[in-house]
């Protein structure tokens, strides 16, 4: 009880500190809050993009992939490499980031994951080890220094949604954030199409639902596993490429996204891809709103705690159809 009280007191203290700061600024008005909610959409874009790959590897394949963050990092490094070798535009590097990380993902599937199907604990350990290996290798090749990725110059500036009387933008969002959201939604759309409208997607779903039966019906399950995992990793690579120019590129960067991606996938539920969209929207906006009222570190604590409570009462996530046992 004592411990709980002291945590509560600590949160209260942090909240006090934050309110004092907001008071000094003259209080929050409507436009700033609207701006913050719109900015939250910017966070949603990043979350959706980073969570999508995990929704494939965990949601469809049930592989607990703790190296997901490192595949995002690899995507960012492919972009960096393409830019420094060939002075390529960021948009042009996206396919390379996809192919590069998908290739490494395929190698991982062949050498590690394949041998551990159906053993979640070992997979967890192996992918965790893998994440450290990838970080170490990248550090050896590229050194620990932060890397510079050039953003596309034609996607800059802000879109004003509401403009004040004197022409100053009151509620605005940057074009690059919108670009991230667009890419995320596009990738979600492509994934949905592949999964539900193509013969390949039908096979993927069949393997996910009943591997033995699918095998009996002549599906090459090991090939499907390979392709699905590589595709999930490729999506992570695209995320890395796109966010690299807005954030920092360094070997440990993936760790930051891993936790967020997991929160998104777990909250949204793993059975329906659309759950990722819902999960990232909920977490992104909750984060933005709480961070605005209190501050960033507190918002993270509250959102994480909320996700833990959610998992306790709805372990299958918010958007899962009730299944018969």
């Amino acid at each position: 009880m004592l411990g709980f009280n002291s945590i509560q007191a600590h949160i209260f203290y942090l909240a006090q500190e934050a309110t004092a700061a907001t008071d000094a600024t003259g209080g929050a008005d409507f436009y700033t809050f609207a701006n913050q909610l719109l900015n939250g959409v910017g966070i949603v874009g990043v979350l959706l993009l980073t969570g999508l790959g995990l929704a494939i590897t965990f949601g469809v394949m049930r592989i607990i992939n703790l190296a997901h963050g490192e595949f995002i990092m690899l995507g960012a490094y492919v972009t960096f490499l393409m830019q420094s070798l060939f002075q390529m535009d960021l948009l042009l590097t996206i396919p390379f980031a996809f192919l590069g990380t998908a290739l490494i993902g395929a190698l991982t599937e062949l050498t590690v994951i394949r041998r551990l199907y159906g053993r979640p604990l070992e997979t967890l350990l192996a992918t965790w080890g893998l994440s450290i290996v990838i970080q170490g290798v990248v550090k050896l090749i590229f050194s620990a220094q932060l890397k510079y990725v050039k953003s596309p110059p034609y996607i800059s500036g802000n879109l004003s949604v509401i403009t004040g009387q004197d022409g100053t933008p009151l509620v605005s969002i940057s074009y690059y954030r919108m670009f991230i959201i667009a890419v995320a939604l596009l990738m979600l759309g492509i994934t949905l199409y592949l999964l539900y409208q193509t013969p390949l997607g039908r096979q993927v779903r069949a393997v996910a639902q009943n591997r033995e039966m699918a095998k009996c019906l002549g599906v090459n399950t090991s090939l499907i596993d390979l392709l699905t995992f590589a595709y999930g990793c490729g999506l992570a690579g695209i995320a890395g490429a796109v966010i690299s120019s807005l954030k920092s590129v360094s070997p440990p960067m993936g760790q930051d996204y891993l936790v967020d991606a997991w929160m998104v996938v777990v909250t949204g539920g793993v059975d329906k891809l659309i759950g990722v969209l819902a999960g990232s929207f909920l977490i992104g906006e909750a984060n933005a709103a709480i961070a605005f009222m209190l501050n960033d570190p507190v918002a993270r604590v509250i959102v994480l705690a909320a996700v833990i409570v959610l998992i306790r009462y709805r372990p299958e996530g918010l958007f899962t159809v009730q299944k018969r046992a």
Partner: peptide, 26 residues
């Protein structure tokens, strides 16, 4: 002078959209 805002981000944070919005407001 006067301090109109005081904000901290966890070590390693790369998402600053909220802090920047508070700066805009202040």
């Amino acid at each position: 002078g006067q301090v109109v805002g005081d904000e901290y981000a966890a070590l390693g944070t790369t998402e600053f959209i909220t802090i920047i919005n508070k700066i805009k407001q202040a």
